[in-house]
Design a protein around this nucleic acid. Structure first.
Length: 503
RNA sequence: GGCGCUAUCGUCUAGGGGUUAGGACGGAAGAUUCUCAAUCUUCAAACCCGGGUUCGAUUCCCGGUAGCGCUACCA
């Protein structure tokens, strides 16, 4: 019977979840889901100094937001606990002692200064700065005596005399000469185990079959393989994912702007869009002519063999494109709710909406959504509804040309008079009728007719269709909102007062 | 410096010993009886360089170059 796939995502809670790490999580998850295997979440917090509980909480939330779930983890448990390294120190200790017993590891009493000197010397002579192996030759009995006497010493693993090779699903066979691999320290003199050692124990204990991680670990892999071999544990398959770069082709980092899951969520990027985009970064389906992959499709199509080994530049524009796509495609209720939360936060909508206001807000979102890449742009876009000021419209340099047009003055005064009249009805139909009247009366048509009116109503010559805009403005003006929406009549009046047509 | 990984349009990529080297984002142009957005159509845009193998390499091999990573008692 084929072994069931078990993969893990093992972040360290030392900051916000970086986009490169989420992609690693995603690929692990996709692989597990596709194979019907197990996806495990494990917290790597041997770096107790920098690890913080609040980051761990956020980590779980960010992963869930993206749409990932895990079968085993610190919060849900599982058959191979603990799922947090800091709860497991005794195990690491025990394995290390076993390695010493079997003489596969040894105490090293070299001081930090001594090692540093050797390193510099080697570098100066153009040699590989590997550990000399001085303490490797120490008599084990003597070493044990010194250790027992309280002398501080680290534990080093003996690297075998043969080259270390391993198979990488993404890159094929990789081989490292043993001459470039030092005997690695697996337990510090302080007693704290080292990452490259701990990770192997954890992966082995949890019966991980495929290690999918960033390619910055590729050079660590020989050391880890050596640990597996020393312990007599089965070596898993590896798959090293390429680095995600910024536009300047340097590793994507904070100075490139938004790089954490939380950042993207706050910007109003939909999780579906982020997942789809991340999947396309370093992976493509056969044929390569499809871009839209909802979650279920990804699970169906994903394959580790098709992951590309070359580094990829993060392209915000394509992310935005996917985000716009999912905004358009998504279920309206969900989109509305999310979008409205951004307007609420901007103080444009109240926290609680009654049915009427809610319907109105939904239409507002529908009207503005085609104009935004992400929802945090919505409040600014909603300015045409909420922040109308005639004085600004009149003063805006972009509007001067349209307002200076010969017929603009006639059109505007006719419009204002018509809107102020008693028989004005705040509907799209009546608006259309008025526009036709004015067209006949002034002889203005096309741009010379519509542009001045649009400037009068929203402060810009271009914007959404009047058919949708007019009812939205009129109905909004009758709602009780944190910011009053000025009606068409109010706008026209205010504008007429502010605007002196040139003779 | 050493070791490792990588190399197709500006970007993400498909492809693969003989192809008009395909798709997508972005860009440009046009259509859509006001504009903008959306939508649709069209266009421009690439096999890093040098050797080798071969009748033929962008594809396979080697070297160079460049980018990135690792080179810790960090993870």
């Amino acid at each position: 019977m084929p072994e069931k796939v078990r993969v893990r995502f093992a972040p360290s809670p030392t900051g916000q979840l970086h986009i490169g790490n989420v992609r690693t999580a995603l690929f692990n998850w996709l692989f597990a889901r596709q194979k019907g295997g197990t996806f495990i979440l494990r917290i790597e917090d041997t770096d107790v100094e920098r690890s913080e509980a609040r980051y761990e909480t956020q980590l779980l939330e960010d992963l869930k937001w993206l749409g990932l779930d895990w079968d085993e983890g610190p919060d849900v448990g599982g058959p191979f606990p603990p799922y947090r390294q800091s709860d497991k120190m005794g195990t690491y200790r025990a394995y290390a002692e076993r390695l010493i017993q079997e003489q596969k590891a040894y105490y090293c009493f070299c001081s930090a200064e001594e090692l540093e000197r050797e390193r510099e010397q080697a570098l100066k002579e153009g040699r590989q700065p590997v550990y000399s192996g001085k303490c490797r030759r120490l008599d084990p009995v003597e070493a044990a005596r010194r250790h027992a006497a309280g002398e501080a010493g680290a534990i080093r693993l003996k690297i075998p005399e043969h080259p270390i090779r391993f198979h990488d699903i993404v890159r094929g066979d990789v081989e490292f000469s043993n001459e470039v691999v030092s005997d690695p320290i697996i337990v510090r003199s302080s007693g704290l185990p080292v990452y490259n050692y701990v990770v192997v124990i954890d992966d082995a204990d949890m019966k991980i079959t495929h290690v999918i991680r960033g390619d910055d670990h590729i050079s660590n892999t020989p050391k880890q393989v050596a640990v597996y071999e020393a312990l007599g544990l089965p070596v898993p398959q590896f798959a090293h994912l390429s680095t995600i770069l910024g536009p300047d082709r340097e590793r994507l980092s904070k100075r490139h702007g938004a790089t954490s899951v939380a950042n993207f969520r706050e910007m109003g990027i939909l999780p579906e869009a982020l997942m789809n985009y991340l999947a396309l970064l370093g992976w493509a389906p056969s044929g390569g002519d499809r871009e839209i992959f909802p979650k279920q499709e990804l699970i169906k199509e994903f394959s580790l063999e098709r992951v590309t080994p070359s580094p990829a530049v993060f392209d915000t524009e394509k992310l935005y494109w996917l985000n716009r796509h999912y905004i358009k495609q998504g279920p309206p209720e969900k989109t509305h709710q999310l979008a409205e939360s951004f307007l609420v936060r901007a103080g444009l909508l109240p926290n609680a909406l009654d049915a009427k206001a809610s319907a109105w807000a939904g239409r507002l979102v529908d009207l503005l959504a085609p104009y935004v890449n992400k929802f945090d742009e919505l409040p600014a876009r909603a300015g045409i509804i909420f922040r109308y000021k005639a004085a600004d419209a009149v003063a805006d340099p972009a509007n001067q040309l349209a307002l200076a047009d010969g017929k603009a003055g006639d059109v505007l005064s006719a419009f204002q008079a018509r809107v102020a009249a008693d028989d004005y009805r705040p509907t799209a139909e009546h608006f259309k009728a008025i526009m036709n009247e004015i067209k006949t009366k002034t002889g203005a048509k096309g741009k010379e007719l519509f542009h001045p009116v649009r400037i009068m109503l929203i402060g810009a010559a271009s914007g959404p269709d009047f058919d949708k805009l007019i009812p939205l403005i009129e109905e909004g003006s009758r709602l009780t909102l944190p910011v009053h929406v000025k009606s068409v009549r109010e706008r026209a009046q205010e504008f007429a007062a502010a605007f002196q047509p040139k003779p």
